[in-house]
Simulated scan of single mutants.
Amino acid sequence: MSLVINHNLMAMNASRNLSDHFGRLGVSTRRLSSGLRVGTAADDAAGLAIRELMRSEISSLHQGIRNASDAISLIQTADGALQVIDEKLIRMKELAMQASTGTYNSDQRLIIDSEYQAMSSEINRIANATDFNGIYLLNGNLSGEPATDHNGAGITSTGPLKIHFGTGNDSAEDYYYVAIQGSTSSAFGLGHDAGSKFGLTAEEQNAGKAISTQALAQSAMAAINAAIISKDKIRANLGSMQNRLENTITNLEIQAENMQAAESRISDVDVAQEMTEFVRNQILTQSAVAMLAQANSLPRMAMQLIGG
Rank of each mutant, 00 (worst) to 15 (best):
G189M: 08
A222S: 14
I228H: 02
Q214R: 11
S186A: 15
H192P: 02
A227K: 03
I229S: 14
I228V: 11
L200P: 07
A226S: 14
F198R: 08
A194S: 11
G195N: 14
L200K: 15
T213H: 02
A194V: 10
S196R: 10
A187W: 02
S186R: 08
S240P: 01
L238Y: 06
A202S: 12
L190N: 03
G189V: 11
A220P: 03
S212T: 10
I211D: 00
A194W: 06
D193G: 10
Q205H: 11
Q242F: 00
T184H: 03
G189W: 03
K197L: 08
G208M: 04
S230E: 12
S196Q: 14
S183Q: 15
A210I: 00
N237G: 15
R235Q: 13
S219A: 15
Q242N: 14
G199Q: 05
A222E: 08
S183T: 11
A222D: 11
A215N: 07
K209G: 01
Q218D: 10
E203W: 02
A215L: 09
L200C: 09
L238P: 08
S185V: 09
K209S: 04
A236R: 03
N206V: 07
T201N: 12
A223E: 03
A222P: 02
D232H: 03
E203R: 04
N225D: 15
Q242Y: 02
G189L: 10
A194P: 06
G195Y: 12
G199C: 05
G191Q: 03
F188A: 12
A187N: 15
K231H: 13
L190G: 05
A194T: 10
N206D: 09
A222C: 03
R235W: 01
I224M: 07
T213M: 04
I229T: 15
A220S: 12
L238D: 05
G191V: 05
L238I: 13
I234V: 14
A217M: 01
L216M: 06
S240K: 07
M221H: 01
A220M: 05
K209V: 05
A227R: 01
D193H: 07
A223D: 02
S240T: 13
S219Y: 01
A226D: 15
S186M: 04
I228D: 08
A223W: 00
Q214Y: 00
L190W: 01
S186E: 12
A207M: 02
A187C: 07
A202L: 12
T184Q: 09
G195K: 13
A194F: 08
